[in-house]
Structure formats: C-alpha cells, structure tokens
C-alpha cells in the first residue's frame, strides 16, 4: 500500500500572495465589499464625532458665556477696563472659565497685579506685573479674587484690616451670599441657579444622554448590518468557488487562512478609510454650522482619536468575524456539497 503524504500547508507569505492577487483580480467586487465596511464605519464615526463636537461646543459656549458675564459685571462697576489696574488673588486653582477671564482682563487692562507666593497660579503663567508686597496690591482700582469666601478668608481679612474700599470682585460668590454688614465692597461675579433650574438642567442632561445613546446605538446597529451583509454576501457568493478550490487541492486551513487575510485587508482598509471619512465629513459639516474658530477651540482631539480607534477596531473585528464564520463553514463542507450550493 503506497503512502499518501499530507498536503503541505502553504506558508503565510504564499497565502497572502494568493489573497492579494485575488483582491486585485476581483478589484471591482472587493471595492464594493470594502465600501460596505467603509460606509458602516463612516456612519458610526460621523455620528460619534457629531456628538463629540456638539458636546464640546456646548461646553465652550457655556465657558464663553460665563467669561462674558463676569467681564460685563466688572465693566458695569468700573467703566471701561482700559488703563485700569486690577489686583489678582487666587485662593484655589482657577477653573477653565476663570483662566479665560484672567486672560481677557489682562488683554483689556494691560495691568494685572499679582502677589508672589500664590501656588494656585504657579502652573498658569499669567500676563501682568508681580507686586512684591501685598500692600502694593491695595493701589489697584479693584481686586479680583478667585475662590469662595472660605477659600480666600486670610486674604479677605488682610483687605479688611487695610480698610480696602474699592470693589472686591469674587468669582465664586453669589449675591445671596453677601450680607449688609460686610465691611468690604463685594462684587459677586457668580450666579446661583435656583433648585428648579438645577433640576431642569439635570433632566435636560439626562435626556440628552439617552438621546445620544439611542442614536449611537442605532448607528452601531446600521454599521453592524452593513458590514455583516457585505461580508456574508462576499463569502457566500463564493461557496462554489470554495468547493472548486477544495477540489483543486486546497486544504480547509488554507481556505480559512485566505479568508482571514482577505477580511483583514478589507476590514483594515475599509474601517480606516471609513473612520477618517466619517470624522472629516462630520467635522466639515459642523465647521460650517459653528465656524472654524469655535470648533477648533472646543474639540478634544484625544477623545476623538480614541473614538476613531475604537470604531476602527470594532470594524476590523466585525469584518473578520463575518467573513471567517461562513468561510469556515464552507471550508469544512464536503467539497461535493459546496460545489452543489447555488447562492
């Protein structure tokens, strides 16, 4: 009895060559499959990018509103800020809005006086003069204090002792918190929202989150359907071909390997292009809606990159699963059955 050797498995390199040849040969069909994946992922990333942009813009809008409000309070008290000098004290790390306010004040007055030894301001280099002694600050037209009363108690008592009579603008003080027997002339910059308003805001946020979840879920579903459909079609229409391949001596493993490499190429190229196209499309759209300045100011590129990466990974994963499953079903079929199948 003569021996039958095993069909050697072709090395990965040869399998890859077969795949690349196959993709090149059926270029038209491959492009259709790739565009299926591409459109799916583009849909997902466009939706996600849209929400990211809108979220960022809403936050940016809020900050700009806060800065504008606080600046307006100051100007209505002091008149034009040009040429005025403002003393600056920070009892706490400034928030984004407060930092912007300081930048805005520095721009308008050209003169911000800060005392040394203010750890909260060390990390944020601000324009303006450094006044060596706290006493020098008393010369300023007004005092801008970052922090609540409690956070800045020491500084405030210092002012009190010096009988400081000019306005003390507090960024974290509301008019409700001032009392008539305050010896200092407080200028509260913060506004307290009523409980009703806060509840309404929270409810608004909650529904917005549900809405985002809902739309993103639908987008994910559409993507899922699109990719699954494209890949299932592209493999099942080749069942006969898989049967023929096996008749000609391809092992099941080679068939699986070929489809794995092929779906990897299709998945990576489709998902990458889709993520880029989707994000670019979305950004271009919102660029027109909000204008480039606001968009650039509010976009968190790190989060966007994370989103895109997640979308690409999801796309590649889906593509491979949707190709490998039918391909391995077909490759483990008896060749005669695969040949008979008519899809």
């Amino acid at each position: 009895m003569s021996r039958v050797p095993e069909q050697i498995d072709l090395p990965l390199r040869v399998a890859a060559t077969i795949v690349v040849q196959g993709l090149r040969i059926r270029l038209g069909r491959s492009l259709v499959t790739i565009s299926g994946v591409l459109l799916g992922i583009a849909m997902l990333t466009a939706t996600a990018t849209g929400y990211l942009v809108k979220d960022g813009v809403r936050e940016e809008d809020q900050i700009r509103g806060d800065v504008r409000r606080m600046t307006n309070f100051l100007t209505s008290e002091l008149g034009t800020l040009e040429g005025k000098s403002l003393a600056l004290f920070a009892g706490d790390e400034p928030t984004e809005a407060e930092t912007r306010l300081l930048a805005e004040l520095a721009r308008q007055t050209q003169r911000l006086l800060t005392a040394p030894d203010q750890p909260a301001l060390e990390s944020k280099p601000l324009p303006g003069e450094r006044v060596p002694k706290a006493a020098g600050l008393l010369e300023a037209d007004a005092c801008v204090v970052i922090g609540s009363r409690a956070e800045t108690a020491a500084f405030l008592s210092q002012l009190q002792e010096a009988h400081y009579g000019r306005p003390v603008a507090m960024t974290r003080l509301t008019s409700e918190e001032t009392t008539p027997d305050d010896t200092l002339y407080f200028l509260p910059l913060s506004t307290e929202l009523s409980e009703q308003e806060l509840a309404a805001q929270a409810a608004e946020k909650r529904t917005a989150r549900y809405r985002v979840g809902w739309v993103l879920g639908i987008a994910l579903l559409v993507t899922l359907m699109g990719i699954t459909n494209a890949m299932l079609m592209s493999v099942t229409e080749r069942f006969r071909e898989i049967g023929t391949m096996k008749c000609l001596g391809a092992t099941s493993r080679l068939v699986r390997r070929i489809f794995l490499i092929e779906s990897l190429i299709v998945g990576v190229s489709g998902a990458l292009a889709g993520a880029l196209l989707g994000a670019l499309f979305s950004l271009a759209f919102y660029c027109i809606v909000y204008g480039p300045a606001l968009l650039v100011g509010s976009l968190d590129l790190g989060v966007l990159a994370l989103w895109l990466l997640a979308a690409v990974l999801a796309g590649v994963f889906l593509t491979i699963i949707c190709a490998i499953y039918p391909a391995s079903v077909a490759s483990s079929m008896v060749p005669a059955t695969a040949l008979r199948s008519n899809v």
């Binding site: 039958v4 095993e6 069909q7 096996k246 001596g249 391809a250 092992t251 060749p335």
Partner: peptide, 13 residues
C-alpha cells in the same frame, strides 16, 4: 483512512 490534509494532497496531485 485519509485525513483532510491527505485528501487535499490526493485531490491536488
């Protein structure tokens, strides 16, 4: 008696 790899060899050659 042949496994799938051996069958593939047979079909191939």
């Amino acid at each position: 008696q042949l496994d799938t790899e051996e069958l593939a060899w047979l079909r191939c050659r």
